[in-house]
Design a protein around this nucleic acid. Structure first.
Lengths: 169, 169
DNA sequence: TGGAATCACTTCAAGCGTGAAGTCATTGAG
DNA sequence: CTCAATGACTTCACGCTTGAAGTGATTCCA
């Protein structure tokens, strides 16, 4: 990516091998996807419902949980966000009347985030908007093999190198 | 993604088809990559050189341009950032002494961003750090077929649906 | 030639994410 | 039992991104 080609001289401190053309394509492809897709997918949600993509995913994940309630830490895990981020997001969603928070009766350290009826209605209304964007920007341009490859690649990368043995939970 | 399955009744306003399991896997895979990878790839750069991933990419792209100078708008294009974002990023990089800005002699509307010597040295020093992270978090976990698929998928998605005829520039 | 339109940025305020430090609940060792 | 350790958040200050509104430079055409 840089105009720098570190041919490691003898005894150089373990410089990693430079990227060849194919590797570079894979890498730049991934990073541009990561930079471009969220914006494209967020636009319709934001325009029609005043929601961030991440806010929608948060609401959506709560709606999928049994009883439409989920622990903050679990929510952070399934949305790929930090606990701090989720705390902020849920606070805002609560302010807007879509979510409520309460301590988990089973263990007071946990906080349960629950959907209100308004929150559920919002998810129902926003889902088709989101779905349309996902089809348009992700699914439709790809064929079946691409979609399978994407799922497989994501599965391999999601778990980072030194992070085995805690795939679930 | 949501616990809502819009079976469109007769005459319903064109609800898009819901996602089947394979489609959902592809979609959630993509979005979690987009959420997770930037953070992982930024960490070492930020720790060792006080650089954002985006700042590194910006410097790196300038270093690759002929004469180590590039127009702001071209820089925005190659980094997948907005012009506004680049204006802010480059302003900060300039303050730190790594970049200078000057009007393009050929057309005073353009601004050329150029690397200083310090900026070039920084790219040289940061490149191996970045490279190591890319290998560890992206390239190494994938095999050759995966990497090819990733490049192909990104190429298909980069250009959005109604955006043909301006692939280059 | 003049003046409107277009272009390439730049700025600013508002909102969001991050990481460190703080709070409160529960567990566990002695 | 008690009190330190751990766990699950929450808060806050700081920095970054966004989008709308601005500033000059250049082009177009009447």
């Amino acid at each position: 990516m840089a105009a720098v080609d570190p041919e490691p001289g003898p005894g150089a401190p373990e410089e990693p091998r430079w990227l060849d053309a194919a590797e570079k394509e894979a890498w730049t492809g991934l990073i541009s996807l990561a930079l471009l897709m969220p914006g494209r997918l967020e636009a319709p949600l934001h325009q029609e419902h005043g929601l961030t993509l991440f806010e929608y995913m948060t609401l959506s994940q709560i709606s999928e949980a049994p009883g439409r309630a989920i622990r903050m830490s679990e929510l952070a895990y399934v949305t790929n966000g930090s606990l701090s981020r989720l705390s902020n997001v849920v606070k805002r969603l609560e302010r807007r009347g879509w979510v409520t928070r309460s301590p988990d009766p089973a263990d007071g350290r946990y906080t349960l985030a629950s959907l209100t009826d308004d929150g559920y209605e919002l998810v129902v209304a926003a889902a088709p908007v989101h779905l349309r964007a996902v089809r348009e920007h992700v699914l439709d341009p790809l064929n079946k093999a691409d979609r399978q490859a994407l799922a497989r690649i994501a599965a391999k990368l999601r778990t980072r190198p030194s992070d085995y043995g805690r795939e679930a939970h």
